[in-house]
């Protein structure tokens, strides 16, 4: 199952998955496991750019302006370049999601866990989202667990593994250790 260290995981939000995600966050650094979840909000006092680059700039001692282009490029792929200097309160749900996704992927962590309902993305944006994830990491192993009924017909066309939560967790811990 392990092709590459990097992998993206989609989780449906349930009580169980929320607990798993909380445990992962507590045990591993953001550099290893980055999470897109409602429990870790964007910081309201910072712009989208600051929110996205905060960890990368802080941990690597970079100035924000140095990674600004990288963020613009990322947001361009999602057709949302204009949100870069917006604040949390000015974003709609989709933009919110994109900003959080950018925040979780910009520093290339080992594992990205998306523990958020993706329904509101819409089928077109969901496809775009999957394509971009796959494109940005060609060797990425995408694992999807707990199917989302609305998008389940789309999964068949995507090269995504479907595993149970326990199998997924074992795999994740193996990668992280």
């Amino acid at each position: 199952m392990t092709k590459n260290k990097a992998m993206t995981t989609f989780l449906e939000t349930t009580h169980e998955t929320k607990n798993i995600v909380s445990d992962l966050i507590e045990k591993y650094s953001w550099g290893k496991v980055s999470v897109v979840t409602e429990e870790i909000p964007l910081m309201s006092a910072l712009t989208v750019l600051d929110n996205i680059v905060l960890y990368k700039c802080y941990s690597k001692r970079l100035s924000i302006s140095k990674v600004e282009n990288e963020v613009i490029e990322f947001l361009n792929r999602y057709n949302e370049p204009n949100i870069i200097y917006s604040h949390k309160g000015q974003l709609n749900k989709y933009q919110h999601f994109i900003a959080k996704l950018a925040r979780a992927t910009i520093h290339k962590p080992d594992i990205i866990v998306i523990c958020m309902p993706v329904d509101y993305l819409g089928i077109e944006n969901f496809n775009l989202f999957i394509d971009i994830i796959k494109e940005s990491n060609t060797d990425l192993e995408n694992i999807m667990i707990l199917e989302n009924i609305r998008f389940s017909n789309l999964y068949d066309n995507l090269d995504i593994n479907k595993v149970g939560i326990n199998e997924w967790l074992t795999h994740v811990i193996k990668i992280l250790n």
Binding site: I40, P41, S44, Y58
Partner: peptide, 20 residues
């Protein structure tokens, strides 16, 4: 207001998660 909103919006959880 800045800090109070950060607290009520749970922004400090974000920093904790990132070890900042």
């Amino acid at each position: 207001i800045d800090i109070a909103l950060m607290k009520s919006n749970n922004d400090f959880k974000t920093l904790q998660s990132m070890d900042i």
